[in-house]
Design a protein around this nucleic acid. Structure first.
Lengths: 197, 197
DNA sequence: CGGATTTCTTAGCGTTTGTTAACGAATTGC
DNA sequence: GCAATTCGTTAACAAACGCTAAGAAATCCG
């Protein structure tokens, strides 16, 4: 089964007839390291399923500093929800951290499928609900836990890919702290674990 | 037009026939000050539209401390998305800050309408997307701005109801700082505005 | 209206974080 | 493979925050 069809299948089943129009709009796309799929300030009317590789979502602040807030790996659907829905320029960029392979399609195509096939409308609802639950959990964690507790929570979570494959400075940003601070948090941990005696 | 129908109408139009089954499932509900609509640890299978009053959404931590993360006012739809979608106990409580009037209905009814009327399915998608954009913006603000900057952003925003009608300790929690800290931030502001000469 | 509760502010102290800078290690890319 | 870049850690200092406590102000409610 096509990876995108498999992705959708986790939410709703698609018949051949339902899958065909989406399949017809797909395009393969490769990104080199540091190449961008979405660029801050530009409209981003395409969605992409990551086939292989890893990307980061980041904001460039007025002072030029970058803040990374999310990561995408294999079988993650990525894009600027905000830009696709509103048509406005994207407020963030998405950049490949390593050479990355994508299947892309225009959001406009998905919107047309929402109108034509009830099963896609349902997929759209379930997808938005799924992301809403994830974003809510993340928001709650930021409001409820300290930076150190957030790092512990990440260690205990199943998001091991983030810790294994992402440079620590970006993980720090994801946790809402500076790289220096995360380094200190880790140092505190080690001196406690392998502490006196 | 019924307030709930007007709420839905901001997303999709409803015919009389489509509105009728939802209208049949509605119940009026009053909350006294500090009374809870959703209780942490219990299933919360109902949604509610606030007709008048104000509520806060808060988490009670293991140590007994409360953290308020959201507010609801007139014409806000509230409930535990997570509990409704998963059937699990709610991870937070929702409590009236002042005497509050609600119209409530079971989420199960909405789920049935998703199946029976495409217009409700679309409403469900648009509603989830709308909330996702809001939650994403909030998450971004927490990751990009300092506590002081977040307070400034709230001052400049159109969420004036929060500042006008919510006790400051809860606003502090919403911003991700302690009440003492918010008080200091405000004091710093005043001494800068009306500073030396 | 008036006592009781809740809320906001201020202060002092300890801890954590942010910032800048420097150094060594690891990775990248030609 | 080697030069160049990126990355992680540590240090030192200043600033901000969390915590506790106490008093003043505002609000609630009988």
């Amino acid at each position: 089964m096509h990876p995108l069809r498999a992705y959708i299948h986790r939410f709703v089943p698609l018949t051949e007839d339902e899958w065909a129009p989406l399949a017809a709009g797909l395009r393969m796309h490769q990104l080199g390291r540091k190449q961008e799929f979405v660029t801050q300030g530009q409209a981003a009317p395409e969605l992409a399923l990551v086939l292989a590789g890893a990307c980061r979502l980041y904001y460039t602040r007025p002072d030029g500093e970058e803040r990374t807030t999310y990561f995408f790996f294999e079988n993650h659907l990525m894009g600027s929800y905000q830009s696709c829905l509103t048509g406005q320029p994207s407020q963030f960029s998405i950049q490949a951290l390593v050479p990355t392979e994508l299947v892309t399609f225009p959001y406009a195509l998905l919107r047309r499928l929402f109108d034509e096939y009830p099963v896609y409308e349902r997929f759209g609802r379930l997808l938005a609900e799924y992301h809403l639950l994830g974003t809510d959990a993340r928001l709650t964690e930021l409001l409820l836990l300290s930076p150190e507790q957030r790092y512990h929570a990440l260690l205990r979570s199943h998001k091991t890919k983030i810790l294994e494959r992402i440079p620590q400075q970006y993980v720090a940003s994801y946790l809402g702290v500076t790289p220096v601070s995360l380094s200190r948090i880790r140092a505190r941990l080690l001196s406690n674990d392998a502490g006196p005696m």
